[in-house]
Design a protein around this nucleic acid. Structure first.
Lengths: 348, 348
DNA sequence: CTGTTAGCGCTTTCAG
DNA sequence: CTGAAAGCGCTAACAG
């Protein structure tokens, strides 16, 4: 019924082994033979059987990409960049490798489940994007899983995620702490002294690092860290909206709001506007990530640009073994402060 | 070296077949036996070999999702919804199915390549999202490919894409024409008579349908369709920015700009603003899709909301055979006009 | 409810 | 440079 490699071999009058060799192009084959085989493939409209091939070769053309939420451009941009690099030449059987995108929702169990599923598929590589959940048992479970994947020959790369100790995983970590610190320093430099901070979910490395950077900047100025000026939420607009209302309730004299990311910052802007406050005249707002829409906000958002596409591309190349891993198995990717319209000197 | 199903069988003192049965849960097995097997799986830390399983069963747990650009929330939202539906219960070997997201960049060749790759993987289903390229040879090639996939047992679903004739593909098409017409009617109702239109790339169904809807509304009002009022571009912000400048150059007296989608509309707003024109006081702007950021723009965008997540979820369910296909193998998904701040009565 | 028996379609030594 | 042969690890009849 379905055409197999043996059919192609018969038609081209060669052995199955030879067909396999021309298809994989990883072995010398006479040009004339190759041509004959290729013609047979064409005439028969043959399509290689991926699972069979993966079984025999003990590795597949699949690359797993774990993201918290693919609908969020933060992850979409990285996924897109990774995907662009893993395709193309190289790889077995005709080049292209397929990206398996897994939405974990940031949930530990789902992360582990997907990792197991990818292990089951004998994925050629796995790239984990975004911050990690900070929870000892889970972190240990992930580390164990990554180790097993690596043992089975799967390359493991972390993109925008801190290194995992005792693991062969290559890490490209974002300098969230440094970026956040710079951002808050910018606001302090403008003269702000009463700043609210909308943090991401607790128990997440990204959340913690950004918050630490913010506090470090405050501390350097000798500003006391009032816990009432920090609110935790999710990494979305809605959360920013609600958190801002709460911060305003706690202290109506705030002159700046620093958000966990750009989406949150947009929510903050909306809440301020609806509270009758102007941005930045009454209250300055700052985001993080510099997603594409941030420059279009009115006023445009002051934020920290993270080179998501570049980092993703690099992660993809490393995952494919097309770029050397950084020394020590880890590299820090810095952000860049983007000063724009949403931040200004405090009123009075 | 690696643990196989046979090892588990030996340890649990049952046959390999029995182990397979408890793992797939698709066959009656005595509770005590199942427990013994599960314990062995656990003790041995066994992970099923996906390729081997797919080879033997002649079907895999992979579901392909073709998108133009995963970094674009329009596709990210659909992909996310599809993915949420294909996971979970059902499926062979423990439930979860994996989403293989393929970025086609809207390029015909890549679309075909990915379809072949998915065919190679014996994907359980394939969902094609977004508009199709209108090009006879390519359309025919895609139709042929879809037919072959279906013959091989792969379920094919189109989400936000018009039906493909002579194909078993189930289609969930967006009513782009109707939505665009409503949108332009809204503007005409406000009194606008000189409207510019920024269309998407040529040779795309989405582009054509939206443009047709726009023109139908114009025609119904007896407004002549001046070709100089239409500019083609890409579906991104940059394109909207440039196209708006061009439209303004051609006719500085425009009172409204209708954009191919929200991103383009945002670019249009930026161009107008920089040209010293206020939105909507001087020029009204309208988008399409109602992506999450659109409500946050200032002014918020008048647009047509497409139920992307709902459509994606439905497509995912149909792809999994968990929801009946619509009668005739196709359904039209309507958009909803969202009148917001970016549209108003024309000046004077 | 469980075991036996064939493969699924390909890759890869090992010879030649 | 090419062929022969031995599996890769699992599933699915078919018996029992």
């Amino acid at each position: 019924m379905t055409v197999t490699l043996a059919d192609v071999a018969a038609r081209a009058q060669v052995s199955p082994a030879t067909v396999s060799r021309v298809l994989n192009g990883n072995y010398p084959v006479a040009a004339s033979t190759r041509e004959r085989v290729l013609r047979a493939v064409d005439e028969l409209d043959y399509v290689l059987n991926g699972p069979a091939s993966a079984l025999a070769a003990a590795t597949s053309d699949l690359v797993g990409i774990l993201v918290h939420d693919i609908a969020d451009p933060f992850f979409g941009i990285m996924a897109s960049a990774i995907q662009a690099e893993i395709g193309g030449t190289g790889g077995r059987a005709g080049g292209e490798r397929l990206a398996v995108v897994c939405n974990t929702g940031g949930l530990p169990e789902r992360e582990l489940t997907y990792l197991t599923l990818l292990q089951r598929q004998r994925a050629a590589a796995v790239v984990l994007t975004g911050g990690a959940v900070e929870n000892a048992p889970h972190a240990a479970a992930v580390a164990t899983k990554l180790r097993k994947l690596a043992e089975a020959g799967t390359r493991v790369v972390l993109c925008g995620r801190p290194p995992v100790v005792d693991t062969p995983a290559i890490a490209l970590a974002f300098d969230n702490r440094g970026g956040a610190r710079q951002l808050t320093e910018h606001l302090l430099g403008l003269g702000h002294r009463r700043l609210g901070y909308i943090a991401g979910p607790e128990e997440r490395t990204t959340t913690r690092h950004r918050l630490e950077g913010h506090r470090a900047a405050l501390a350097a100025q000798g500003i006391e860290d009032d816990p009432r000026r920090t609110v935790h939420g999710r990494y979305d607009r809605r959360s920013g909206y609600e958190a801002t209302l709460e911060l305003l309730r706690r202290d109506p004299s705030l002159t700046a709001v620093v958000a966990a990311n750009d989406s949150v910052a947009l929510g903050a802007c909306a809440a301020l506007r609806e509270s009758g406050l102007r941005v930045p005249d009454d209250v300055s707002v700052a985001g993080f990530d510099d997603l594409p829409f941030s420059v279009d906000a009115v006023p445009s958002l002051t934020t920290v640009r993270l080179p998501l596409a570049e980092a993703g591309a690099r992660a993809g190349r490393i995952a494919m073994g097309r770029e050397e891993a950084p020394p020590g198995g880890m590299a820090t990717v810095r952000g860049e402060l983007m000063v724009r319209g949403s931040s200004g000197v405090p009123r009075r």
